[in-house]
Design a protein around this nucleic acid. Structure first.
Lengths: 250, 250
DNA sequence: CGGTACCTTGAGCGGGATCAACCAGCGTGG
DNA sequence: CCACGCTGGTTGATCCCGCTCAAGGTACCG
């Protein structure tokens, strides 16, 4: 019989991956990693990759959701709005997070691009069918939901019990850790662009713009962070920043 | 309740259900509803029903978890503690909620009985195996996680943007709605026992005991609620209570 | 009885909100 | 080129909500 040599199988394998996905940054991360080439192909048939500029709304609170998305780059903020205009960011999503709420037609939160965002979106129905058919996919989604829940609870502690100074430090730490996920930098300085403007940070931390600004200034003057052009932050020592997250240093 | 139209079939059916589960309040709700009689039997082999008195710790932050539980009655509080003693309740679980964190050996939160609690606990390993084998079960857990996430985000808004008066009103509303899940009471008064003492309410809302007490007094004097023996609350009109959740009435 | 757990109430203070002014960067149009 | 408005950020002065500290009340239990 005819031999099935390895290299060929690999070629065939690759050719099964949809063009759209081949160069995708999130191809092996997030939920896509749980899909077989066949499933990926099926899904990609309805998929649109798009770039969304900052401040554009992706999902509007209360409206029926027709699409899910994967974040490929940038940051999406999930916000809740009160009748009188008070606003709170209830979650932040980074690549390769999945944006959407299975098992509900709509939700109370709206999703908005905090920065320029690249994402991959697909029709809810197609995805729902695939979820129902693929336990692996559902498991990934479940895991992400649990991680978001952990994060949400972390922020509940921050919002409920920390001072303004601690809140701002905690926020900066979260961003820094997101930039350098597994402490690869070791003791080296970490430098990054803040994905949120002051108003968003305030909405995230349950503070006002002015308080956020003052606390950032205080951290800067204390040498815990360096700030250039308002948005570029350098953290010389993660541990010094971490100290600021728990004790209201005098 | 159980007006059995077909006694015989019911008997046969019942005989497949483990003894432990036959009279369980949560038998058809929560995750157990997703299990087949066979699975139920398998799981119940390692299951223990227990009663836990108020304030006993079920799961300790950071420690390895060996058991999951189902809440059959009572309220479990999930708390996070800071190094200096500040505490925050990050979640409340009612019957028939599932308590546990799949895919992690431990978590940052500890679980404590807020009231006397009846629960059904089973070894983590047995449950993990069953989750892996049963997509239906996993789906239930996923759905519960999403609902907890929705609730967590609701409370993030409350913690971040509401005043003390609004926080307390929102808490009472949440409890009232939990007691009367689908507005069966219509316009009728709702009466219930507060499952949390003042200290817990404070930890839940990011306030102090004193502030909680003062706000409850204020609601009582305004006729929005009636309070007997500190813990028994009557809400004559849900909608009047609901008004207090958004607008800081003068 | 006294002891303890839980709750309420009052007096005073302070952290963060509010109100207001100002600054820097940047795109637009004259 | 500068004038202009606009967005985003900083800083200062003042105010007030909720915290802190302190005292007292009530129910329950030995």
């Amino acid at each position: 019989m005819d031999a099935a040599p390895e290299p060929e199988r690999l070629d065939i394998h690759n050719s099964e991956i949809p063009v759209l996905c081949r160069s995708c940054e999130a191809r092996h991360r997030g939920i896509c990693g749980a899909l077989t080439p066949v499933e990926l192909t099926q899904l990609s048939r309805h998929t649109v990759k798009q770039k969304v500029e900052s401040d554009r709304e992706l999902v509007s609170a209360g409206e029926e959701v027709k699409h899910y998305s994967n974040v490929l780059s940038g940051v999406v903020k999930l916000t809740r709005l009160m009748a009188d205009g008070r606003q709170q960011i209830v979650g932040l999503q980074f690549a390769p997070d999945f944006v959407g709420r299975p098992f509900r037609r709509s939700s109370e939160v709206s999703a908005e691009a905090a920065t320029e965002v690249k994402l991959c979106s697909f029709p809810k129905q197609a995805m729902d069918d695939m979820i129902a058919a693929s336990p692996d996919l559902e498991r990934r989604l479940y895991q992400q939901a649990l991680e978001e829940l952990d994060e949400a609870r972390e922020w509940i502690l921050t919002l409920g019990r920390k001072t303004a100074a601690e809140k701002v430090a905690s926020f900066l730490l979260m961003i820094a850790e997101n930039v350098d996920p597994d402490g690869i930098a070791g003791g080296r300085p970490i430098r990054f662009e803040l994905p949120l403007k002051r108003a968003d940070i305030a909405d995230f931390l349950g503070l006002t713009i002015e308080t956020v600004s003052r606390q950032i200034t205080k951290l800067r003057k204390a040498g815990v962070i360096l700030v250039e052009h308002n948005r570029t932050v350098t953290v010389p020592s993660l541990s010094r920043l971490r100290e600021r997250c728990e004790v209201d240093a005098g």
